[in-house]
Design a binder for these strands. Structure first.
Lengths: 372, 372
DNA sequence: TGTTAGCACTCTTGTTTGTGGAGTGCTAAC
DNA sequence: GTTAGCACTCCACAAACAAGAGTGCTAACA
């Protein structure tokens, strides 16, 4: 019995998958017989398909229907695709129609990315910005806003900015503010946010001595500001409604769950984390989760393709594209690859060219011109 | 012919509407005959319904089906509802299960509001935060980040904070920075952001004299930071997926448009603006847009109920609830009313109790305790 | 004059039934 | 190993049908 996956079977499998991706309907032996240049009759194809089914690469929705690819079949196809692409990754990039405008606000870049990807692929896209957590603090500016109010402005590597209002029980004067400012800077500058732990904070409180009450509050506030909270993992999405274009996802119950995930974003953050975790072991930067492999329960009927990108200043972002199982993997992978080169062009050459957002978003960036 | 809307007709109409709101299905004469305590036979009801239809308060989906309320019918019902509620608005408020936690970050309050409303009503909700535009500038802090970089931190009334990175062509020293800082503060403090126009900016550039090149860039940057941009109208949404629970909105094409509006938010901003515009003329603070009255083309099949709230520091926010035509107006209006009292409790007593977000969102607020 | 019972009629909704088509598996011939 | 042929299966779609809900109208009634 011809039970190994010889070349002919591969060709047929690929033909089945490609046809199915285009039409979305189970594909029969006759179609393949014409579609390929193998010059085989439908009967022969039928035999091969029977084998392919037994091997688990394709399935029949019901007897006497055509075949559709199984997750295993997609897997094979996608793996090949990713490897192929990796080799000739310079060839097709020039043909890309992706345009990421230069801008100096990270937030805007991220929004653009998801929008462009959503438009190019017609799937739902998302991107997770860099986590504030791994950046080190550049400096802290303490300003008196009123008698008993201070504003702490914390600037981290990559020009991420966070603001924190501090309301005090007792008034402070300008002098104290300056001293506090120095103390904070001495202790915290250069440390990464992850490094700043409770130990350090209590030590600072002790060193404070005289105004220990005031400083306790200030230090606490600053500590809170830089603690990674839910907002620390900013996520932008675009094209969530694209899923309505794919009938297999558009029925109310599934669509509701998917859309909810894109609205809520907490689940998405979870997904990104899981995807990143798996990505570490694997070598490639592009990762595909097909059907049941999907990291999220809601997305068992979808495929998710993720990729990691440099965002300047050593920050990394992860982008994910969510579509139906029968997504156009080729197009998706191509888009992700061209995005990669674009990002390298934008951020590859060394130093900061854009400001990071505060806590990931929404703080206006520079109007400074980029050095071209 | 009994062509004026006498009391009995009103009762029947109300009964029809209420029943329809509950069941979602056309309601027949027999149902009303039992449901009301009028003790009338279905035949009589039929006659009355025939009249009501001729008057335009109800319609028949097809011959020999029950009746459903028309927009005009809803209008009457809702108007009554709003007025009734306005009178007895103290009675039922205690029974509310709405809980807005005290917190000192405006952003979080807004998020909470939409979430609670979405949960209580099971409709899609949104809130537009205060526009930065009408607030006046409290002070500006200019900090040197590097040789050729400045960070401008702009604090406005209500403790809205904006950050703006400024990249310069030439380096500046500490001394210049301080002088620039003073100039900016002298000129801009106390002005509302709306007041700061091009005139003022060019005047400042002239006054600058010596480092006019540097100051031009700084002033421009600050000006840009406080210009109302798209982000100036922050909108939070929740429960967009609730619309899937209402079959009349859940079919793909309509759902797609609605969900898209909630994802994109630009359209929502537009809607809020229109609603606010209409709200000015009308006296009441709660406004209902029923079916075709809806301010957005996408929402012609929905009803939208909006309300305005104080958010402290004289800021106003507008909240909107979007559901099917047959939404539970009573519950919605009740929820909006209790929200109103809650907000008054939280923000009614005078001064700033929370920090505003930068550009409306995402800047960490104070950990300072509220004075209770 | 307003109210009610009765009845024929209409329209929707759900179910059943039947038919065409696409596709398969198998067998036998090449 | 490949292919033609054929019987069989199953879905998708349409037509036919029955049940139910509700109406409008007419005629009787208080």
């Amino acid at each position: 019995m011809g039970m190994e996956l010889d070349d002919r079977k591969k060709i047929i499998l690929r033909a089945i998958i490609q046809t199915y991706l285009e039409t979305g309907e189970p594909v029969g032996s006759r179609t393949i017989s014409r579609y390929t240049d193998l010059n085989l009759s439908s009967a022969t194809i039928r035999n091969e398909m029977s084998d392919l089914e037994e091997m688990g690469y394709i399935v029949q929705p019901h007897t006497s229907a055509g075949r559709i690819p199984s997750d295993k079949g997609y897997r094979l196809y996608v793996n090949e695709l990713i490897q192929q692409q990796a080799q000739q990754n310079l060839a097709s990039q020039e043909t890309s129609k992706m345009v990421i405008e230069k801008t100096d606000r990270l937030e805007k870049v991220l929004k653009q990315i998801v929008q462009v990807l959503a438009k190019n692929t017609n799937y739902a896209t998302m991107i997770a910005g860099p986590s504030y957590h791994q950046n080190s603090i550049k400096f802290i500016q303490l300003s008196r806003v009123g008698e008993d109010q201070l504003l702490a402005t914390i600037v981290a590597e990559g020009n991420l900015v966070k603001n924190q209002m501090i309301r005090l029980t007792d008034p402070v004067d300008e002098d104290q503010t300056v001293r506090l400012n120095m103390l904070l800077n001495n202790q915290l500058c250069g440390k990464t946010i992850g490094e700043i732990n409770l130990d350090m904070i209590t030590r600072m409180k002790q060193q404070a001595g005289i105004h220990s009450e005031v400083i306790a509050r200030v230090v606490d506030a600053v500590a809170e500001a830089i603690q990674p909270d839910e907002e620390d993992f900013p996520i932008y999405t675009s094209g969530a409604t694209n899923i309505f274009d794919y009938p297999e996802l558009a029925d109310s119950s599934k669509a509701k769950e998917l859309i909810y995930a894109f609205e809520d974003k907490k689940e998405l953050a979870e997904m990104i984390r899981e995807a990143d975790a798996e990505n570490k072991e694997g070598g490639t930067d592009i990762q595909a989760f097909i059907g049941k492999e999907s990291p999220l329960a809601n997305m068992q009927d979808c495929s998710v393709v993720t990729a990691k990108y440099k965002l300047g200043n050593g920050m990394m972002g992860t982008v994910a594209i969510v579509g139906p199982r029968r997504m156009d993997y080729k197009n998706v992978v191509e888009n992700l690859r061209t995005l990669k080169t674009q990002m390298n062009e934008l951020f590859g050459n060394g130093d900061a060219q854009l400001e990071g957002p505060s806590s990931g978003r929404e703080v206006p960036g520079s109007s400074g011109q980029e050095k071209k």
